[in-house]
């Protein structure tokens, strides 16, 4: 029995804020402002004042309205900064959604790649236990502190997603590979213990290491993972109908297209420009929009790349 997607639901606000009008722009240095203006993000989505858990609950509730079955597992991809320390954001989502018989837990520490790790783990758990029928995965994107510009990476938008994995669902998860490299674990960080939250600043220990060393590791890792995934599925690169990835900057699409000789589908750039970077939600949104508008047919293969500067990389092949 194959495992695939039951439903996807994304929550995005009606309010879009031009990056040029973000309140922090005036306080940024020249290089940071130049980055924010040229990274391919025109507007960001904003849910002012909402907590990550609240947003994730909303995405799950709206999905469960359409697909009322009780999932066996609720798997939350951890947010950049948890709403509560010591408490549990995922159990808050469980309480909000009244999924009393569902077991809830979090996948964390993988940045954007968390969503890919979550669907791979969900697939494996369903395959491992025939008694389980479905897994609900959710994530909400909110900035770590008050600022949204993450120089030299991206600009953060707000949103939330929910998706289910079910037996016999489509697209089918055909193959998946992932990898981590712990030596990048402190490339980015926020000194949250010494400062109040509104002064939290994401610090990149070395922008050169990010732009160069991590980029080269990504070239090697993603190149190998793509080959392995295609080999696992017994298909060729030319059989892939569309390739998606996370939305960080417009130049990243050029980088990965050159790197892998796989054109990144334009739906990614459209979502980047409109909503900004939505963390682990990006690939879920891109897949949802591709399925809704991409002109693909049953049996077509969609390759989803995902990586984060933690550093983690994942490649998944879906069959429509």
């Amino acid at each position: 029995m194959s495992i695939g997607i039951g439903s996807i639901h994304c929550v995005l606000p009606d309010t879009l804020v031009p990056v040029a009008e973000l309140p922090e722009i005036e306080a940024l240095g020249h290089e940071e402002v130049e980055f924010a203006r040229s990274c391919g993000i025109e507007t960001i989505s904003e849910f002012d004042g909402l907590a990550s858990g609240e947003l994730a609950s909303r995405a799950c509730l709206e999905l469960l309205d359409r697909e009322p079955a009780q999932p066996d597992l609720l798997l939350m991809v951890g947010s950049r900064a948890p709403d509560v320390l010591l408490g549990s954001d995922v159990c808050r989502v469980q309480a909000d959604t009244k999924l009393t018989n569902t077991f809830a837990f979090t996948v964390d520490g993988l940045g954007c790649t968390g969503s890919s790790a979550a669907w791979a783990l969900g697939r494996d758990l369903l395959l491992a236990d025939p008694a389980k029928q479905s897994v609900l995965i959710t994530h909400a994107s909110r900035p770590t502190g008050a600022d949204r510009v993450r120089f030299p990476v991206t600009v953060i938008g707000d949103g939330a997603c929910a998706m289910t994995l079910v037996r016999g669902g489509r697209p089918v998860l055909r193959a998946h590979r992932m990898a981590t490299d712990g030596t990048f674990h402190d490339l980015f960080g926020v000194d949250y213990k010494q400062t109040p939250w509104y002064e939290w600043r994401e610090e990149c220990a070395s922008p050169d290491r990010y732009r160069f060393e991590l980029a080269l590791h990504s070239r090697m890792r993603l190149g190998k993972l793509v080959k392995q995934v295609l080999a696992d599925a017994g298909v060729e690169r030319s059989d892939v109908a569309a390739t998606l990835m996370q939305n960080v900057t417009a130049s990243a699409y050029d980088f990965y297209s050159s790197l892998l000789d796989l054109p990144i589908h334009p739906v990614c750039g459209e979502n980047l420009s409109r909503y900004g970077h939505l963390g682990a939600m990006d690939v879920v949104l891109n897949l949802d929009r591709l399925l809704a508008t991409g002109g693909l047919a049953k049996g077509d293969l969609v390759l989803v790349l995902n990586n984060s500067p933690v550093a983690a990389w994942a490649v998944t092949l879906w069959e429509l």
């Binding site: 050169d208 290491r209 160069f212 980029a215 080269l216 090697m220 990243a252 980088f255």
Partner: peptide, 29 residues
Amino acid sequence: VVSSLFALELVVHLEKAYGVEVEGEYLSL
């Protein structure tokens, strides 16, 4: 001058021009 794309160009050039494969610990800045 070093962007991610330029880094990629540089490594691809090194590998093609000099017949080497840059991997693992050699990917250091």
